[in-house]
């Protein structure tokens, strides 16, 4: 992470969306955008690639379902075959409900823990909000300022049509901004 950054604050999500578009067109590097809630279309405006979490979810779910089907077969037909209600030892219909539940369980836990892991969130983690009000009613755009050509006044002129509330320079040493 860079040391010098520029923090632009907006009051409305529409302004943030428009600002992101303009800034990206100018070729400035955006570190991240912070909003009080999920803003529709922001991921596309920022040019983020589609989330890979869905694949984690799918693979976990399939692992749960197939793993449990195999386990039920091993238990019910190979390791300790028990006659239940005169049914055949390897009865698929009786295995489906548990396989389904396991698929849901694995998919759910897998997605949640993958998300927490990728975002490096864990209990007791210290969070340094980029701006207190970003959890309430402000929208923040964080720009990288390490580029030699970076000029704050140009940026300010560029962003002022979007009801810019504040423009602030930050220097972060060693820490991580959330």
């Amino acid at each position: 992470m860079s040391d010098r950054m520029l923090l632009a604050t907006f009051e409305h999500e529409e302004d943030l969306l428009d600002a992101v578009e303009v800034v990206r067109k100018k070729g400035c590097k955006i570190i991240d955008a912070y909003t009080p809630y999920a803003v529709h279309g922001l991921d596309r405006a920022l040019g983020l690639r589609p989330s890979r979490l869905t694949w984690v979810c799918f693979v976990c779910g399939m692992t749960g379902a197939l793993g449990m089907l195999w386990f039920e077969y091993w238990v019910g037909a190979l390791a300790w075959a028990v006659d239940v209600g005169g049914k055949p030892w390897n009865s698929l219909p009786s295995n489906v409900p548990v396989a389904f539940e396991t698929a849901v369980l694995f998919a759910g836990f897998g997605s949640v823990f993958a998300l927490l892991g990728v975002s490096r969130l864990f209990p007791g983690k210290q969070v340094l909000p980029v701006l207190e009000r970003v959890t309430d009613d402000r929208f923040v755009l964080l720009l990288d300022e390490t580029d030699a050509q970076f000029d704050v006044s140009t940026i300010k002129a560029m962003l002022s049509p979007f009801n810019l509330v504040a423009l602030e320079e930050r220097v972060v040493s060693g820490g991580e901004l959330q």
């Binding site: 209600g85 005169g86 049914k87 219909p93 009786s94 489906v96």
Partner: peptide, 12 residues
């Protein structure tokens, strides 16, 4: 579909 099938299959 499965809920209907499984109960009938199981109760027999």
């Amino acid at each position: 579909w499965f809920s209907q099938y499984m109960l009938i299959w199981y109760t027999n």
